[in-house]
Nucleic acid binder design. Structure first.
Lengths: 327, 327
DNA sequence: CTGTTAGCGCCTTCAC
DNA sequence: GTGAAGGCGCTAACAG
């Protein structure tokens, strides 16, 4: 490349890095640019990263298994990255898989820092491993799971769950069931479930779970129609997430159960559709924009100053009450 | 690190690369592993990539602006990557932004190959630029846009659009409008629109567009309610995508218009919800699983053999007829 | 303004 | 089985 442009590697570097602080003869620059175009030459990013000691890349670690909430968070991160000069590389963290292998893979990408989003039930494995696997890379976790040993922007879903339960109880519901996929780790665990349990026990009520196999339309339908036909539907469902709640609402409506009157529904996350459903759905909305903004701030601080002290913050979700749980 | 383990860099490399072909004393191995754990040492991926000449990373270039269809594709790619030993780094290609800057950023990630998905209206800039920016990196585009100069797995949405129109026309619809966001580049362009135009002109019918500002619930509502109140609703809407069609259906239903009887609706993409909507929605389903599988195959072939000839294939979407366009 | 030199951290080759 | 040397492609520092 340098040869083709009749110049040295250093000059090529100066031109192609777009440096304005070093004066370069217009003619030389043109020669370099043309040679690059002819050869289809692009600087090797790995070599660049090695030399510079930084990559300009922030890794976003998350599960890419589809969910609307994750999509919204991704979208938010995307728009925030546009205004700062970092590339943002999303890598899939598969929680059902072998963690170590997953992390090994994620660490193949040379990074200036990592944001780990809702790395859910692998959180134990994750935080301890991430300490071991990448303790020197700036790291912030955000979402429902965190470790006190690392910087984080957490969302206190247990508090959110308790808000939701207080609302359901204060509007007279007594038979309240927790609704989650039986194949999920959140079946009978996690902050949402803990909030549910605490509230039911404090109220002296019997706990109950409704567990479709997954949150697919079919499974939810099968689960609910069985309960409807046996006339055993509870007075309220605390649904693990909004997508499940939305499907519930559609299914129940087709089964002749009126959401908001015959049964109350509450979801988690705060995705857009809850507002526009046939019957708008009450939801525990996660403050994900603030979460993203803070996580990026925290990470920035760590990147600029590797010895930056821990930054930890817990956000509280907001209960948005709508018709699906009308009094 | 080598010092801490009382050994040489070469041995550290042999241990940490997990090589089984080179015999290493169990004790030495243990010493290295422990030193690594104590120091929290991780091999520098950039240096590795530079030495090895490969990174084990495949870049997925796409817009991360949220859409359900993109989410499903991402999910499909994710599950396919699990079974092959590549990391998969998703980088946002912003089409509304300055292309060159976007590509510059995406190219900061050291990659063995690139899959570009639906890099839509930037396709011209994109393919020409990608030739210039990364002509030597194995590259496959997949989705609705492609360049004949590169390998691709395309989806012929124009053919899909014509199928949809043939169906609407054959079921007696005459006043058919094309429905897209006025702020989108697909407002009056792109393969979907071309198919619409061709069909209408062949049938000797007057073209018409309905253009809400965006595909948000509010904008669609404003657009449709205006038409309803003026009693000017067409007999059918060809909606640019399923998400828009689903919102249309909800809005129309609230406005007292019965979908499938008073008006026909057809969407594009084939997302799951179309099947479970109040009135199931007719859609031009994109064969995205096949698309992903082929794109990965093609890329693999190129990675393994840099001089592999071009591989190009055009897939045809499938029209799924449901109640929203019942005869 | 531009070329030369050295080193980033790793892995491969070749000795021992 | 293990260490020493060299080079991957780039850029900062230093000459000229």
């Amino acid at each position: 490349m340098a040869r083709r442009a009749n110049t040295s590697g250093a000059t090529v570097s100066r031109v192609l890095s777009g440096r304005t602080d070093i004066p370069i003869l217009a003619e030389t620059r043109a020669r370099v640019l043309q040679a690059a175009a002819e050869l289809g030459y692009t600087p090797n990013p790995a070599a660049r990263a090695l030399t510079n000691g930084k990559t300009g890349i922030i890794g976003l670690w998350m599960s890419l298994a589809y969910s609307k909430y994750r999509g919204q968070v991704l979208d938010t991160m995307r728009s925030m990255m546009q205004v700062i000069d970092f590339t943002f590389a999303v890598t899939d963290i598969d929680e059902e898989y072998h963690f170590v292998q997953t992390f090994d893979r994620a660490l193949r990408v040379p990074l200036d820092g990592i944001i780990a989003f809702d790395t859910s039930y692998s959180v134990d494995a994750f935080t301890s491993k991430s300490n071991q696997l990448a303790p020197n890379i700036p790291f912030v976790s955000m979402g429902a799971y965190w470790s006190e040993e690392r910087s984080y922007v957490g969302i206190d879903l247990r508090a959110g769950s308790e808000q939701a339960m207080a609302h359901l109880l204060s509007t007279g519901r007594r038979k309240i069931a927790y609704f989650a996929p039986s194949t999920s780790d959140l079946r009978a665990a996690g902050p949402r479930y803990e909030g549910y349990v605490a509230a039911m026990e404090a109220a002296g009520l019997a706990k109950q779970t409704l567990l479709p196999k997954t949150f697919s339309h079919r499974d939810i339908h099968d689960c609910l129609s069985a309960h409807v036909s046996m006339n055993r539907l509870p007075e309220a469902l605390l649904c693990m997430n909004d997508e499940g709640a939305l499907i519930c609402a559609r299914v129940l409506s087709k089964l002749g159960v009126e959401v908001g009157r015959d049964i109350a529904l509450v979801g988690f996350d705060g995705i857009d559709e809850t507002e526009y459903a046939e019957t708008p759905i009450t939801t525990v909305a996660q403050p994900y924009e603030e979460m993203c903004r803070l996580a990026l701030d925290y990470l920035h601080a760590q990147i600029n100053d590797p010895s930056h002290p821990l930054q930890q913050k817990l956000l509280v979700p907001q209960l948005i009450i709508r018709e699906s749980s009308a009094p």
